[in-house]
Amino acid sequence: MTSVRINDSDVELPDQASVVDAVAHTTGRELTSAGAPVDGGRLGVAVALDGEVVPRSRWAVTELSAGQDLEIVTAVQGG
């Protein structure tokens, strides 16, 4: 298992987990390797890994290593 920080919480993911796996874990949605929801629609989520945005096109090929810090964000109500 690999332990990473997601939105300030420690999360255990399988070894060689990628950003896609982290997003699927956090959102509870099944994702294609392209980062799109299997059930259709738009995900509306973005990821920063150690302070750098990871484009959706690179989610599947970005493998996580222990101790890395992920921010997974989405749109919420706001002025």
């Binding site: 939105n7 300030d8 956090t26 959102t27 509870g28 989520v45 973005a46 921010e71 997974i72 964000v73 989405t74 749109a75 919420v76 109500q77 706001g78 002025g79």
Partner: peptide, 11 residues
Amino acid sequence: TVAMRRYSPDT
């Protein structure tokens, strides 16, 4: 407008 915040299950 919308704001960007950490994903939470309530979202």
